[in-house]
Design a protein around this nucleic acid. Structure first.
Length: 231
DNA sequence: ACCCAGGTGGCCC
DNA sequence: GGGCCACATGGG
């Protein structure tokens, strides 16, 4: 039999994906996301938030701002040791300090500014970001979507978990299998991609955690997990 | 005292 | 391509 796409299970239609999206949006409102004032702040925050809570990232960003280091140029010129003291609350601070400086230096050297880098076409921008040490698939997509505002779908731990619970997709589905599912199902629209992922994070933080809070979950009607637990 | 959080790169098979 | 590990603070 001919099979379309990868075998990640669930195989939700685009209509079902949109239904999930609308349930979340009805509860949380249109989010038009990323907590950050400027593109540079979003870029820096995207790296700092790897495997940490946003609360901790806010402290790190506040420290960088106070030290006048909340910019790509500033970080490219700063000492790794100084950066690391400011970003300590965000965790993995020695590693992130090195990678932050490395990434910023590379961008200044090769493009002059973040804005110039962002003038690349979406796939080129994504590839260029992926070739920077410290920027993996999720961070590259986050920067492309939320800082450069170009249409690429972001997958994260919440997305994986919510999709598994709502549609029965595989817990071990790869990043690109899930990304492909969304991008082949939805209209290629940065506004939609932006808000869809933002809704996932909102649902993940408040309801669909490792230990889920199914009572009052906006998506419980179409979630296997919630039904199984009669919440 | 545990477990978890909006990942990534290095190393191995 | 995938499995395993180090990386680290702060909150529940």
């Amino acid at each position: 039999m001919h099979v379309r796409g990868s075998a990640i299970g669930g195989n939700p239609s685009s209509g079902e994906l949109m239904r999930l999206y609308k349930l979340m949006r009805r509860r949380f409102g249109f989010l038009d996301w990323w907590p950050g004032e400027t593109k540079e702040e979003v870029f820096i925050g995207a790296i700092l938030t790897q495997q940490t809570t946003w609360k901790n990232v806010e402290k790190a960003i506040a420290n960088l701002r106070k030290a006048k280091l909340l910019s790509v140029k500033g970080l490219s010129d700063a000492d790794v040791s100084e950066i690391s003291t400011h970003i300590r609350p965000s965790g993995y601070y020695r590693q992130k300090a090195m990678r932050l400086k490395g990434a910023c230096s590379q961008i200044i050297k090769n493009y002059g500014s973040l804005e110039n880098l962002f003038s690349l076409e979406t796939p080129d921008l994504r590839e260029t970001l992926l070739n920077i040490k410290g920027i993996g698939p999720e961070t590259a997509d986050s920067i492309t979507l939320y800082a450069a505002r170009k249409p690429t779908f972001v997958i994260d731990a919440y997305t994986k978990r919510i999709m598994a619970r709502a549609f029965g997709t595989s817990e071990t589905a790869s990043y690109y299998e899930l990304k492909e599912l969304f991008e082949s199902s939805l209209k290629r629209d940065a506004r939609l991609y932006n808000d869809f992922h933002a809704q996932f994070v909102e649902l993940g933080k408040n309801y669909c955690k490792t230990k889920p809070l199914c009572a009052d979950c906006p998506v419980k009607g179409m979630c296997r997990y919630g039904k199984r637990n009669g919440a």
